[in-house]
Amino acid sequence: MMAAFEPKIVGILCNWCSYAGADLAGISRTKYPANIRIIRVMCSGRVDPTFVLQAFAEGADGVLVSGCHPGDCHYQEGNYKTYARAEILEQLLEQMGIEKGRFRLTWVSANEGEIFASLVSEMVEEVRALGPFRPTRERFAELQATIGREVAPAAGAGGEGND
């Protein structure tokens, strides 16, 4: 039997609020699933959308970006930029066929350890329900394997012609 699917989630958290919040969840011994790999950046405004796409391309099943609440960014307006970027990114991801639940932007402050823990649990369950995301490499290798065998042009006819 295949092992149950455990989603891999990449969490990119800003140093001043969300990372501290995640830390608080840790030192308060709040339980939450171990599916998230946390990367600390100075500000959510540092999160280049490339990071998100690359995480998916390399096989992350979900990506969580978290920063300070609006108005609280240590650098004044990093998170406003993040918010606008995430809005565009969500549209782009949708066009690329990536389900909504796989990407999230949240605001978590330094004293919201509990909230962080429940956000992660929620996201893990949502992504678990969506199933594994296939890294570009794998998906592409499969596509390239079809280079030798072209697609059957007629639906159902198998492209074998009329004999």
Partner: peptide, 21 residues
Amino acid sequence: VLDQGAKMTAALGGMISSRNE
């Protein structure tokens, strides 16, 4: 630049003047 789409997302997202969602 690894990905033109991601870079444009970053550039345009950083240009919006409003702070109201």
